[in-house]
Write a protein that binds this DNA or RNA. Structure first.
Length: 727
DNA sequence: CGAAAGGCTCTTTTT
DNA sequence: GAGCCTTTCG
């Protein structure tokens, strides 16, 4: 088979331009992943480049895996030698191998953002600031921003202009100290330290530059400055850098992805070849049209001409429902309808939303109707308490200096080591200049043992701490010779965690989670004991939820718009098409962010091959209270000829919206004259007679639930339902 | 020390 | 509505 056979001219150009830098701007569904795969295959098979000398960076681990599979089919020879993965995974590997040269403990732990938050809280307290006054999240974000620009605390403080900067500077400084003491790296560090390594160690840098003859970067629009810097360094010798991206699909600026990288690329490599992939192979004409109208309303963008030879297809369906429950119900019904009419299978359908919280109502509806679904995130698997607890044990075994993990599990399950004791342990450790683990009685350095800690702990506490220390020592000793599965079982059993879960609340579900983690562990059974642990921990920290998505099972997919990037589905529902949700209200006051919200919507629509539904609810529960909202302004940018209405949608602002807003502007005096209570008999023009089930005051209105004879149970707004009381 | 209850705040997206 | 923190009581 010829590698170039199935490519169109532009794609072929992108594959064949192997010498020098290449910038590929690729629209949605234009086959960019295929182009990357074919380019790698071409390099190996036609140009005779050793896979060992190629690095391909993907956005998720899943994308990396798929790439590997594709390549396996294209080039039968081994692709194992390829460097293939996310920036974070690749950097972690580099740092494990080379970090020693810049003082990085090769057994470093990687702290995820939850760990990061707790570290920031600790840092705040340690520099005498109140975590309540200074939101840890905001500080994490400021520090991440600094790290994305590779600013160490010292420079950050020097450049600080505001009071907040100064606060952040102080915390940042302490935070870095704690990281060092713990041999811990956060996500940003993985990238930043790798760049610093190459900057400071020219021998290592030239070794890597000499090795990587070809570099490829997917989703280039979502890289940050550090990542770009890394690519420039690695490609410093050969300049064979191929980046692929789509500015219209840039949706990670909040993670400090910087679109300017695309401009910088053109500037840094003026000789770069530009290839445009504009033919869409995924969507129908009407879907592509709808998407184009949405994205074209953005001001800050270069126009591009997307086209497709696909059929015209169906109109985009816009639907309006009353509540989020009805929204969910509509989605389930519609899915069932499509399936029963043979127009789609369950696996063809994806429901996309802006915020994770929206999945709840959807899930409930799917459960109620018994329609199989899979949720991509929700509470993320690796963020579940029991999972993080067990992982903390394993982390501590690998790196006893990791005080975040230590503090997490020292009293889980309860061992009688409470806050007081932990605080004492921590301050004692600090005064002795050792890690908390070393400060445990059994671990104390011989010269300070016994005497030094005696004043602090009574004999009972001291014994408890010793027991815990001995337990960990036992684990560490076993970790030298046991395979990971046996070590895992030992930890779960001997730590008392198993008994702690069995007998606790939600025992079944939590135990199942442990067992699911165990199946992950099994993949590392045949590794050498130490390597298994290291690789497992790294994998576990750097996986994303999308990585765990299994498309082979025929169920509906519930997924956030962000996670949906790079995927495609025959049928796509986007729910929560409301101002405040999409676009999210947090973005309202920033035009740049509003454009990103629009891109997010665009990404969602362009995932679809056959059908798109845009659904909104009039009333929705947000943080406990009921809120009314207007249709997403993005809906206004889709011309009528591409839309068909469903539900209550009538084209522009719907009947409901009009009624409510006109009422809000001029409150109807009659409202308060209608006093309804549960048990009252009422009549409705359309639904007929019924009985009031409940009556509840909501923002500016009364919400009445009525059981109608024949029409069933309805939730109505008193202000426009015009219920008539029947005696 | 720890379980339970009450009160508080803040809600986006994730490698 | 939930998660986090504090308070209270055994």
């Amino acid at each position: 088979m010829n590698i170039l056979d199935e490519l169109n001219p532009a794609q072929r150009e992108a594959v064949e331009a192997v010498n020098g830098p290449v910038l590929i701007l690729a629209g949605p569904g234009s086959g960019k992943t295929m182009v990357i795969a074919h380019r790698v295959a071409y390099l190996i098979k036609v140009c005779g480049v050793s896979p060992h000398r190629i690095m391909a960076v993907t956005f998720t681990n899943k994308a990396a895996r798929e790439m590997e599979e594709r390549l396996h089919r294209l080039v039968s020879s081994s692709v194992r030698e390829l460097t293939l993965g996310t920036f974070h995974a690749i950097c972690a590997r580099i740092l494990r191998n080379e970090g020693r040269a810049v003082g990085i403990n090769p057994k470093f732990v990687i702290y995820d953002d939850e760990d990061q938050i707790s570290l920031i809280k600790r840092s705040l307290k340690e520099v005498d600031l109140d975590p309540k006054q200074y939101a840890p999240r905001a500080i994490v974000s400021a520090i991440s921003a600094a790290k994305s620009r590779m600013l160490p605390p010292k420079d950050y403080i020097e450049q600080g202009r505001s009071y907040f900067d100064e606060i952040v500077g102080r915390v940042y400084e302490r935070y870095e100290q704690i990281l060092t003491e713990n041999s811990g790296l956060d996500f940003n560090d993985l990238l930043m330290k790798a760049v610093q390594l190459f900057r400071n160690k020219s021998d290592i840098s030239s070794r890597y530059q000499a090795r990587y003859l070809h570099l490829l970067v997917d989703e280039f629009q979502d890289t940050n400055l550090t990542q770009y810097e890394l690519i420039k360094q690695l490609g410093g010798k050969y300049h064979n850098i191929c980046v692929v991206g789509d500015p219209d699909q840039s949706i990670y600026s909040w993670r400090f992805a910087d679109l300017r990288n695309i401009l910088s690329f053109e500037k840094d490599y003026p000789e770069a070849k530009l290839v445009l992939l504009e033919q869409n192979y995924r969507s129908t004409k009407k879907i592509l049209d709808t998407a184009s109208y949405i994205i074209e309303a953005n001001q800050q963008r270069k126009p591009k001409e997307l086209w497709t030879n696909n059929e015209l297809g169906e109109l985009t369906t816009v639907v309006e429902t009353y509540t989020e429950q009805e929204e969910a119900q509509f989605v389930v019904n519609e899915v069932e309808r499509l399936v029963s009419e043979g127009k789609a299978s369950l696996g063809d359908c994806a429901i996309m939303y802006r915020t994770n919280a929206q999945s709840r109502a959807l899930e409930e509806a799917f459960v109620r109707y018994g329609t199989p679904y899979k949720l991509v995130a929700g509470t993320r698997f690796y963020e579940r308490r029991e999972i993080k607890d067990i992982i903390a044990y394993l982390r501590l075994i690998q790196n006893p200096h990791d005080s975040v993990s230590l503090m997490r599990i020292i009293n889980v399950p309860g061992r009688g080591i409470g806050q007081q004791t932990q605080a004492k342990l921590s301050s004692w450790a600090k005064s002795m200049g050792v890690s908390q683990y070393e400060a445990l009685p059994v671990m104390a350095k011989p010269e300070v043992k016994e005497t030094a800690h005696q004043p602090f702990f009574n004999s009972r506490i001291s014994q408890t701490l010793t027991d815990f220390g001995n337990l960990m020592e036992e684990f560490i000793a076993h970790s030298q010779e046991l395979n990971l599965v046996d070590l895992f079982d030992l930890v779960v059993e001997r730590s008392g965690y198993k008994n702690y879960i069995l007998g606790g609340i939600e025992e079944e579900e939590r135990w199942e989670n442990i067992l699911e983690l165990r199946t992950v562990v099994q993949q590392y059974r045949d590794f050498k004991p130490q390597d298994g642990l290291t690789d497992f921990l790294e994998g576990v920290t750097l996986v994303s939820d999308v990585d765990r998505l299994d498309r082979s099972v025929d169920t509906v997919t519930l997924i956030t718009l962000h996670q949906a990037k790079g995927l495609e589905f025959p049928v796509v529902f986007i729910v929560g098409m409301e101002d405040g949700i999409l676009p999210h209200f947090k973005s309202f006051d920033d035009p740049a962010q509003m454009e990103e919200e629009r891109r997010l919507c665009y990404v969602g629509v362009t995932r679809a091959k056959q059908r798109v539904y845009l659904v909104r609810a009039f009333r929705r529960n947000l943080m406990g209270s009921s809120t009314v909202s207007r249709p997403s302004r993005f809906l206004n940018d889709i011309p009528q000829h591409l839309i068909q209405g469903g539900g209550l949608w009538s084209g522009e602002e719907s009947q409901i919206t009009k009624a409510i807003y006109s009422w809000n502007e001029a409150p109807a005096p009659s409202l308060n004259n209608v006093a309804l209570k549960a048990g009252d008999h009422v009549r409705h023009a359309q639904f007929g007679n019924g009985v009031v089930v409940s009556c509840q005051l909501v923002t500016d209105d009364s919400e009445v639930v009525v059981a109608f004879i024949g029409a069933g149970v309805k939730k109505l707004l008193l202000s426009f339902a015009y219920l008539e009381k029947v005696e």
